[in-house]
Amino acid sequence: MSYLEESRFDAILTDPVIPCGVILGEHLSLPSVYFLRGIPCGLDFEATQCPSPPSYVPRGFTDLTDRMTFFQRVKNLLFDTQNLFLCNFAFEPYSKLASEFLQREVAVQDLLRKGSVWLLRLEFVLDYPRPLMPNIIPIGGANCAHKELPQSGRQSKPWN
């Protein structure tokens, strides 16, 4: 820790899904740059204060589209409420760690709100359009590998 404090870095680049880097950035009073695909329980929506009403934005793993019937919207809302419990359960150890380390009561969501820049790996093919805040920069294809297409056994003849 003393090395990090003495080095006087300009910023911290971290993936906030496991918020140890977020806690470290708060401790060192550094601007945080987050690089992520998304937080499974929707904590990124809450932390960035982006509008994401469950009546319009389908949640992951629901197989719903952006055009839902009333009952599909209810299903989406119910799925969203169980995500809140999952999020509290998953990030509770990190809240305790942050509170002990920073020596004050703090929640992970409050730490995430202090992110300076969010580099989101959004793909227009996979994700539905949604409103983004000015400090959120969508960057697509960051985790795509270059693969060669398989060659078929027969060659097509050009037209004469």
Rank of each mutant, 00 (worst) to 15 (best):
L122R: 14
Q155Y: 13
C41K: 15
F70R: 05
R121L: 09
C20D: 14
P138K: 04
Y56T: 15
L30W: 01
F124R: 15
C50P: 12
R73S: 02
F79R: 08
S7G: 02
L149N: 15
S2K: 08
P93E: 02
L120F: 06
Y94R: 05
S2H: 06
D10S: 04
L86H: 05
N143P: 11
D63W: 09
R130W: 03
I18G: 13
P158E: 12
N143R: 11
L30A: 06
V108F: 02
K75Y: 05
P58E: 01
F124C: 11
L13P: 09
T65H: 11
I139N: 12
P58A: 01
F61S: 09
R8F: 03
N88V: 03
V22G: 13
P131I: 02
R73H: 03
P129N: 07
D127W: 01
C41F: 15
P93V: 03
R37Q: 10
V125Q: 13
Q72G: 02
P131Y: 00
P129A: 12
R73E: 01
F45W: 11
P158R: 03
W118Q: 03
L126M: 07
D63T: 10
E46K: 15
N135A: 03
P158W: 00
L111S: 09
G141F: 02
F79Y: 08
Q72M: 00
P93R: 02
Q82R: 06
E92Q: 05
S99H: 06
R113A: 13
L119D: 04
A47E: 07
Q155G: 14
G60E: 15
K96A: 13
A11W: 07
D127V: 04
A11M: 07
P54W: 01
F71L: 00
D63Q: 09
C41A: 15
P40K: 07
S32I: 14
L126Q: 10
S2L: 08
Q109M: 12
S95V: 00
D63A: 10
Q103T: 12
V117R: 05
D66T: 05
P158Q: 05
V108S: 01
